[in-house]
Design a protein around this nucleic acid. Structure first.
Lengths: 344, 344
DNA sequence: AGGCTATCTGTGGACGTACACGAAACACAA
DNA sequence: TTGTGTTTCGTGTACGTCCACAGATAGCCT
């Protein structure tokens, strides 16, 4: 009904011109204290909200968003993120916002630095902070310039007021523990497989690992034997041998937890060893994992909704830039996928 | 860099006035076929995208969206939907879109009809089509007037090209079956509890029930004894008695599936009977259910992300109205919630 | 009072699009 | 040729805001 009041009406009521109102709104100098107060009161009183569309139109600004994220060629995990970014880029175009993907090598800190360099020219930043120190620096840089910066997929440790879109890794780990605890008989033990802890083993993996372990600690936590196996990242044949050995040595193992997307390696090995009876749980709906999920070798996968995460990240930044909003980014559900709810 | 081309530049290039460009863009009559083709070619060639901010500013249109949904007082299930709608209403305001909730009584078809009556004046419709025939009529009405109509939460059966945001009930049912199949030892049977099938037992419930049953049918489906219990909806004491009896008669039952939000009734009864050892699975994160989930009486809840569903529904309609887009509404993940990933 | 700052305020033209109105161009019959 | 009607096109104003510039007002000095 009562359509929002505009700068013009406001001027009429205050008996000043729109120029004055404008100056007050942007608290620029050149307006007497008396009028300023009067105008401010009226703004308050009439609950004036600037028309963001008109505002943005008049101030002919073009915004740009940088997305700092590994190249999708490195790892299929990043593929859907890229898709989300691309879709967002298309959708944001209408708000005069351009989105660029600045790829880096997820195993090479220097490449991150280089990409970060390029990001400084943008108005806002969306990044996967795989390299902690460099990411922190970059974030602080943006903060200092009053520009928004949002992390996704992986969160930085000191997350006080930190802006993040993604799964809570620790919680996800706990959920996995609970799921295995439900599905594996109580007298059997669980195996945690860490693939390639040294290289590119990023914060998310730690969180998932810690969350998993935390489930079995504490006073009335379920008693369950846990075995940890630290596998190599590169040599697949070493891994096969290692897993074969550990399964032989501990025939009591009933379930395996892989806190990252490389669970398909383990799936492959289990099929080789004809041990598909074990409950296998891992992360990410990449094609290889889906394959084994369909066959039943992998039993559960935790989905992060990557396309959605990336899209929402860009959207959130756009809303800040264009509309000046500052809502909570909101978290990503920890989505359990089984053969039965695998889409497509 | 190359800032988007505008209607003005386009006019200059085409050697016509902006008026003509405008007519071509809105394919209104009054422009010769020759010029139209020329302009269209240029539009294509320069990849012209109208500036939506300006567009919306100039066309002083006010859109309205009606949301046909049960009143949240009827049932806590609807509470988060209302919140989603309200948040959407706030966010859509800047696009001059108003959103009204037209509540109806989920058990009273007549109240649905009444609400539907009121909806006809709106530009678009978002509804929970609990009453099939009336909903179909309403939907067709909107379609006939070229207005958008979107269902959420519950889908209409003939969903050929039908627009829907929400969970796939059948798939959700299958997932639940699988989950119980994993967590309940193979030699124990499962109980399916239908609460109040007659009154307000809507399509979603059927889908979840059928999906569940389908899991155990087919050639290499797991063999498992299923027991179905049809409980009364109103008399809680009857229910308690009924469940107690059936548990006594079939002591082999290892898990219970309740295909709707009333799982907390069963949880309450299980606590009374001191049978919290049973795996209990149901739907919706309403406060009562959360309570029992935290305590461990309920083991799994399927979340529908209702706020999100409602919000996305409104947003989708807004995008159609304001921006004229026609993307797929996208589906809702089937989110498994356990004690460990219950938020807050 | 006239002149001169310094401070305060109003005006007008953008931004890119929508739309009403009216002008021009054309066709065709008288 | 003129008149009439129809099709095709251009112009002007508006949307709500930003911003540069010009205009007004007041204070003070000579």
């Amino acid at each position: 009904m009562s359509k929002n009041i505009g700068i013009k009406e406001l001027a009429k009521i205050a008996n000043v011109s729109i120029g004055t109102i404008d100056r007050v709104l942007h608290n620029r100098q050149g307006v007497s204290e008396k009028t300023r107060q009067r105008v401010l009161a009226l703004i308050e009183q009439h609950d004036y909200k600037p028309n963001l569309l008109a505002k943005h139109l008049a101030s002919r600004k073009q915004f740009s968003i940088a997305v700092l994220m590994p190249a999708s060629e490195d790892n299929p995990v990043w593929q859907p993120y890229v898709q989300g970014i691309e879709k967002a880029a298309r959708d944001m175009e209408k708000f005069s916002v351009t989105v660029d993907h600045l790829p880096f090598d997820q195993y090479d800190p220097q490449s991150f630095e280089n990409a970060a360099e390029g990001a400084s020219a943008y108005d806002a930043l969306l990044m996967v902070p795989l390299f902690e120190k460099a990411a922190m620096r970059l974030k602080d840089n943006f903060a200092r310039q009053g520009k928004s910066c949002l992390c996704f997929d992986t969160n930085l440790p000191e997350g006080d007021e930190h802006l993040f879109i993604g799964q809570h890794a620790f919680q996800a780990g706990r959920l996995c523990a609970s799921l295995l605890n439900y599905t594996v008989p109580a007298d059997r033990s669980l195996l945690l497989v860490n693939l390639g802890r040294k290289a590119g083993y990023h914060l998310n993996f730690w969180g998932r690992e810690n969350g998993f372990n935390s489930f079995f600690k504490g006073k009335d936590a379920p008693q369950r034997k846990l075995i940890a196996y630290e596998g190599p990242i590169e040599q697949a044949n070493h891994l096969e041998q290692g897993i074969a050995e550990i399964l032989q040595k501990s025939p009591n193992i009933g379930g395996i937890y892989v806190p990252n997307s490389r669970v398909y390696w383990v799936a492959h090995i289990l099929e080789q060893l004809q041990r598909t009876d074990l409950i296998l749980l891992g992360f990410d709906l990449i094609p290889e994992n889906k394959k084994y999920l369909k066959r039943g070798t992998i039993d559960f996968l935790i989905n992060q909704h990557p396309e959605n995460q990336a899209y929402r990240g860009v959207e959130w930044l756009m809303q800040r830039l264009v509309f000046g909003e500052k809502a909570e980014p909101g978290s990503t559900p920890i989505d359990v996928v089984m053969r039965e709810n695998l889409e497509e």
